[in-house]
């Protein structure tokens, strides 16, 4: 394992004495930030998850009440299930859409300036506010929104559909809207590096377009798909704001469970849920990383 890891991180460079010191000096700012604002907070959460809480304060302790309550509650299992459901459905949609868009950009656009321009069109929303992008769905999906008005005008429905906004539908729609980009970029990145001679060889050997897609392009794009999957799955599993906003507080996922506890100042309980969520996410990532070497794919 450890050999595989260092191999993955520095594939060609050989170890030399003196590397350690300069390496750590150069990596010091990153390391310090990660120590203070990532590892220490995680450690703190783990510690606090064993603490006790009164209605107004928390006190140091070592008890398993928070975990016992968490695993003893039927709500926990329902909410974790809902979280996996959101992650899976969002993953399926973002993959299908992201793959198609990336395929179009990589293989059907012949001029490079246009390719770059269209790629930027896809990525620019990533650099704007997620909250504003969520708010933008309200006039579209609301009871008197554009979608309902249009459907009524076309005579497809008589009554406005109630499930467009503040439902699982709107939550997943927002997820797909926000995160498809995270599929498009890595998939596109691996697709443009596919050797075009391979496609020609497939065609020369009599493969149809579809066969080339399934047997040549798809397998070669797998690393990009994996990286996109890691992004989408972790973003959706860790989310607490999209679910709250797009469901009008009517749906729950694990992130909301944590943020509700925080709102009630029940930090130990929030911490215990956070520990379980973190472990879940890390296990999922651990499985996905088996299939891809991130450093090599950049």
């Amino acid at each position: 394992m450890s050999e595989g890891v260092s191999e993955a991180v520095a594939p060609k460079a050989a170890w030399r004495p003196g590397n350690d010191l300069t390496g750590w000096l150069q990596a010091a700012p990153l390391t310090l930030i990660l120590l203070a604002f990532l590892l220490a907070p995680i450690a703190m959460i783990v510690v606090v998850s064993f603490w006790g809480a009164t209605e107004f304060s928390i006190y140091p302790d070592f008890q398993f009440d928070n975990y016992a309550f968490l695993f003893g509650s039927e709500v926990t299992y329902r909410v974790f299930l809902a979280t996996f459901k959101y992650a899976f459905i969002t993953w399926a949609f973002t993959l299908a859409i992201g793959f198609t868009v990336a395929y179009f950009l990589a293989f059907h656009i012949r001029s490079q300036p246009i390719q770059i321009a269209l790629f930027l069109v896809c990525t620019i929303p990533f650099w704007t506010s997620n909250i504003i992008r969520m708010i933008s769905w309200i006039p579209f999906l609301g009871r008197n929104g554009i979608a309902n008005q249009t459907l009524i005008d076309w005579g497809l429905i008589d009554q406005p559909l109630e499930w467009l906004l503040y439902s699982d539908f709107s939550v997943i729609l927002a997820f797909v809207h926000l995160y498809t980009l995270f599929m498009v970029v890595p998939i596109f990145n691996t697709m443009v590096r596919i050797d075009r001679a391979l496609l020609e060889a497939a065609r020369d050997n009599g493969a149809s377009g579809l066969q080339t897609l399934v047997h040549v392009i798809l397998p070669l794009t797998k690393p990009g798909i994996m990286i996109g999957t890691i992004f989408v799955v972790t973003l959706v599993m860790g989310d607490f704001i999209t679910v709250r906003f797009m469901s009008g507080s009517q749906r729950a996922n694990v992130g909301r469970l944590i943020s509700n506890d925080i709102g009630l100042l029940q930090y130990p309980s929030a911490a215990a849920t956070a520990v379980v969520l973190l472990l879940t996410v890390l296990i999922v990532i651990g499985i996905l990383l088996r299939f891809v070497n991130i450093r090599k794919e950049l």
Partner: peptide, 30 residues
């Protein structure tokens, strides 16, 4: 730093990836 192999670079890399994939609310809370 990561252009050369230094002791612990593998660990640091995975910590950085963790920073990316960790649910944001944990950072806030912690």
């Amino acid at each position: 730093a990561f252009r050369k192999r230094f002791l612990g670079s593998g660990v640091l890399f995975y910590v950085a990836i963790t920073s990316l994939v960790i649910p944001s609310i944990l950072i806030s809370l912690g």
